[in-house]
Amino acid sequence: MLAAFVEVFDPQHPVSALRVADRPDPATPPGWTVIEVKAASINHHDIWSLRGVGLDAGKLPMVLGCDAAGIDANGREVIVHAVVTDPVDSAAPGRPSVLSERHQGTFAQFLAVPAANLVPKPASLSFAEAACLPTAWLTAYNMLFRQASLSPGDTVLVQGASGGLSTALLALGNAAGFRMWATGRSEDKRSHALALGAQSAFEPGQRLPARVDAVMESVGAATWEHSLKALRPEGTVVVAGATSGYMAQTELGRIFANRLKIVGTAMGSLADLRRLVSFCDVKGIKPHVHSVEPLTNAVRAFQTVLDGDVRGKVVLQP
């Protein structure tokens, strides 16, 4: 089968480590099944894997990709929950992992996955749109509805205005009745945020007209100080990534004086994915897809994500 995979890490030039070639068809342990992949979206997790972060060299070669939508062995259209907990890996039985960490990933014509990880795809979503949900959109759902303790009418600042997670936060938050604000590095990205449902969009670091109830933070070092300053007393910053760097100075006095809460999260449960899919179906929400590329163009698609000039998710189709 055709697949996009890594066999040697390249920390400095990650896209150079990506290979697109034939790989063996997947095996199916007990309780697993094979789906025909119709679409799979790229996440920053895949860029980090090419650098060798979070992926054991002993697992190489590894097919990359966490997210997928496709057709199961019974002909049903399904979405794959990417978090796997199983006893297949005797070195770490029962420890959760994400597809492409301990088990081969989704950037391939076929994918082996626990049968319990499959969620029905609603007819309202295309395969490309559905493939955006399991990582970025599920993380956004978790950030807004599980971690931030928000109520309709609250104000939420999203650091970043155009990537897959940011666009998910804006769409879901707007549908839930939150006042959504966003930051963007260019006028074009800020306009895009407004088109997706943000009530206001600001330059990075810009002083806001009021303090916010929560900040959705995935940029990291470049926006961390601004995130803390933007919060009202007893507000919450929810952290789900650090694309600009993991190390940032923190003014501890501001945290304890204002009783701020800092919460970390990533992705979500299978039950939450089912709720997210239902929410999108009922509300008519469709993930914004920046582009759809054939799997043979995976190198170009990865470079687009790495360059950061995206509006939503980049999707690969085998």
Rank of each mutant, 00 (worst) to 15 (best):
D22C: 00
P114M: 10
G184L: 03
L111Y: 10
L273R: 05
K38S: 08
V34F: 00
F110Q: 15
D188S: 14
G31D: 04
N297A: 15
D188Q: 15
T85D: 05
R211Q: 14
A242L: 12
H103V: 05
A21E: 13
D89I: 06
W32G: 09
K261L: 03
A21K: 10
S244R: 01
L273P: 11
K313P: 07
S162V: 06
E203F: 04
F279N: 07
E203N: 13
V263I: 13
E36W: 06
M180P: 07
S166K: 09
D272G: 08
T106F: 09
A108G: 11
T85Y: 09
L169I: 15
L208N: 11
E225G: 11
E36Q: 12
H192P: 01
V238D: 08
A39D: 05
H288E: 15
S100N: 13
G177A: 03
T236A: 03
V212M: 01
L125P: 08
R190F: 06
A182N: 09
V212K: 04
W224S: 09
A271H: 11
G160I: 04
H288A: 15
G245K: 10
V15F: 00
G58K: 05
C280F: 11
T135R: 09
E225Y: 05
V34W: 00
R185W: 14
E36G: 11
T85E: 12
E101V: 13
P233V: 11
D213W: 07
R95Y: 07
S278T: 14
A175E: 04
D46E: 15
G205K: 03
S126V: 10
A21I: 06
W224A: 09
D213Q: 08
V37M: 08
Y141L: 00
L196Q: 15
Y246I: 14
L55E: 01
V212T: 01
F110M: 13
P318S: 12
G241N: 03
R146W: 03
G52S: 04
L169H: 11
E293Q: 14
A27K: 13
S162N: 08
G70I: 13
V158H: 04
S97K: 06
F178Y: 15
H103L: 10
V8D: 13
Y246S: 15
G52L: 03
P209K: 04
T106N: 03
A69N: 06
M247K: 14
M1Y: 02
G173V: 05
E187A: 14
F279A: 08
H192I: 10
L138K: 05
Q249W: 12
V15W: 00
A214W: 02
A161Y: 07
N117F: 08
A17V: 00
D89K: 02
H13S: 12
H226G: 14
M267F: 01
V219R: 02
V15G: 02
V315E: 06
T167Y: 08
N117W: 07
I262E: 02
A230F: 02
L157K: 13
H288T: 15
S218C: 12
G54S: 04
L138Y: 09
R102I: 07
R23M: 14
G164H: 08
A176V: 02
A40Y: 11
V53F: 07
P11E: 04
G94S: 07
